[in-house]
């Protein structure tokens, strides 16, 4: 079923238009890799979906419900969780407390349609099981973690809200190759869980290995949208660097 539908989305940063007329759908269980150069609008698109950036035009629908006007914190309850670039943990809170902040305040009342969405059934216990690293570090202040540990905490913090749609923004950025492997290994449990995932990843190789679908963004527009099997590496690279972009989806 269609989990996320984006229609004619326009997002501006002041006078700059970062996302132009983007249409995109994501189904439950799909892993969509958003690729594109720096400044192509990938992160902006994720933040607009998560509700932390205002939308100039267009709509964002989650499970058929228009959430364009819903504030970010309520979208979490509706089923959208974002793991932001740079992790952005709460440094004054311990690892466990960082996870617990992500737990919804009350039972999900008033989100009837949204709660019907397929979710992974995540909670704090399952996160600690899936990320043994976090169980070991549970009482350590988040400000004292290494990059990989921070990333695991950030992913865990997003998961405890039991999202239907998980948005991952540059989860490998600034991590050692070994740490990236650890992070992606732990993501497999998430990806297998049936939730929809949109990931922004600089590492095209890794993105192609993980994703079921690849969407290329160039200057705020979707230039390619293909299933992974049909994704030709060279073609993606071309889209990435903005050469020969006349091909539309």
């Amino acid at each position: 079923m269609t989990l996320l539908r984006i229609e004619g989305l326009v997002v501006r940063h002041g006078l700059l238009t970062a996302v132009r007329e983007v249409d995109l759908t994501v189904a439950s269980g799909e892993v969509v890799a958003l690729v594109g150069a720096n400044g192509a609008g990938k992160s902006t698109l994720l933040h607009a979906v998560a509700g932390s950036l205002p939308v100039a035009r267009g709509r964002v629908l989650l499970g058929g419900t228009d959430v364009t006007a819903v504030p970010a914190h309520q979208r979490v309850r509706a089923g959208i969780s974002l793991v932001p670039e740079g992790r952005l943990l709460f440094p004054g809170l311990s690892v466990l407390e960082n996870l617990l902040v992500g737990v919804p305040a009350r039972s999900r009342r008033g989100a009837d349609e949204a709660s019907a969405l397929p979710r992974g059934g995540w909670d704090v216990e399952r996160v600690l099981d899936a990320f043994p690293l976090l169980a070991r570090l549970r009482d350590r202040p988040a400000g004292l973690l290494s990059g990989g540990e921070q990333q695991a905490t950030a992913i865990g913090r997003a998961l405890v809200a039991d999202p239907a749609l998980l948005l991952l923004d540059e989860v490998s950025l600034g991590l050692s190759p070994a740490a990236v492997d650890v992070v992606y290994a732990s993501l497999e449990a998430v990806l297998a869980g049936g939730v929809g995932v949109v990931l922004v990843e600089q590492d095209i190789e890794r993105a192609l290995r993980t994703a079921t679908r690849v969407v290329c963004l160039l200057e705020g527009r979707v230039t390619r949208d293909v299933a992974r099997e049909h994704a030709d590496r060279e073609e993606i690279t071309r889209a990435y660097f903005g050469t020969g972009t006349e091909v539309a989806s």
């Binding site: 979490v76 969780s81 974002l82 952005l88 809170l93």
Partner: peptide, 24 residues
């Protein structure tokens, strides 16, 4: 308390707190 955690998270970073479901 959970409320206290939300307060401390908001104090640390209100924008990120909103991203994890806290009404700052």
């Amino acid at each position: 308390t959970a409320f206290g955690r939300r307060v401390r998270a908001t104090a640390d970073d209100p924008a990120t707190a909103a991203l994890v479901g806290v009404d700052a």
